[in-house]
Nucleic acid binder design. Structure first.
Lengths: 184, 184
DNA sequence: GATTTCATTAACAGATCGGTCCACATTCAT
DNA sequence: ATGAATGTGGACCGATCTGTTAATGAAATC
């Protein structure tokens, strides 16, 4: 299997897991939908868990790249970029395939805290917070670490509310909260 | 099976589903751990889904009762009670069995938005928002509905962050955000 | 062109899934 | 005591789960 086909397999598996959930998506379905036989899949991933981890790595890369780029496109200064994150999220919420945060869902399905999947999901959030903190520091805010974590809470909350109730408004509400936060 | 045993079954099933997840907890395990045979379980619940729904009803009742009572115990005025919610959440986060929000996890595992389980999870959040809104109105805040939804976002975000990283600090961070919000 | 190598596939394990059937134990009215 | 009714548990059902094996096809090397 070429590197291309491997990447394509991960890409398609991501869509399946995102749409149907991890436990609810069997490897037979993955094989059928990707057109790659189970034997070939298991040649490259020793277990389903390894495939899930590869999918989460791809998701982390895609999501952070998209979010960071969109934040830069929507605002100039670091402070405005932090606020623009919620505009970017609002765009995501109204996309057709939006189904909430894949890492929250992964964390919900694999509960043991030591589990590699949970560790990776947490790593994704840590990278986000680090980025927020850098922006907050560049914006000259007094407690960048604290602000970054508060913004993470607002982001996660907005995603959860949007996923459960199709309430695109949650992005705007979280942004309004962030504005009062950054002005305080 | 008496009404008592039925309630006991739901109570024990709740712990299993909360700890292990819904799909990952089979009915055989439920039978084994509750000491009730599958035949008896299926006499009272036609499907696993019905049992899950009963569990979520119990969880909704328990959680809201606990939260509302704790908010009242911790603060006198409606405005302070809204803030005290985050102190109550902080107490929850450090409890031994804390594993995040059961409704977020249910919603993550049963994705179809029309699914009865999702509808019920959303109903839980709606009842919370209604309560927040009532308190916000009693506190004389200018836009109670908006504030209530912003507080919901903060609550969900704090829970998600706490569940993924054992960061009890998230309750305090969310509270600090809420304070700036209510003062603005 | 023969042979080695590798990838792919269908079929198959063994376990577990949600859900059912049946034989039996218990209770109750007669 | 006896018959009907009810509740219970363990064995069982087909489907599906993750993961493997054996046979096949194609491509590459000599």
């Amino acid at each position: 299997m070429s590197q291309n086909k491997r990447a394509e397999l991960i890409r398609k598996a991501l869509l399946l897991f995102y749409r149907n959930g991890f436990h609810a998506t069997g490897m037979d379905l993955v094989a059928k939908e990707t057109g790659v036989s189970k034997t070939s899949i298991y040649k490259h991933f020793r277990t389903k868990e390894e495939l899930v981890l590869a999918v989460l790595r791809l998701r982390d890369e895609n999501f952070r790249n998209w979010l960071y780029r969109r934040m830069e496109e929507l605002a100039e200064t670091p402070g405005d970029q932090l606020l623009a994150m919620f505009d970017a999220l609002g765009e995501w919420f109204v996309e057709d395939g939006f189904k909430g945060c894949m890492f929250i869902k992964a964390s919900a399905e694999f509960q043991e805290r030591e589990h590699a999947i949970n560790v990776q999901a947490y790593e994704h959030k840590r990278l986000l917070v680090d980025h927020f903190e850098k922006l907050a520091r560049d914006a000259g805010l007094s407690d960048p670490h604290r602000v970054a974590r508060q913004l993470l809470i607002l982001k996660e909350g907005a995603i959860v509310v949007a996923a459960m109730s199709h309430a695109e408004a949650s992005a705007a509400e979280a942004k309004a909260t962030a504005i009062t936060l950054l002005r305080s």
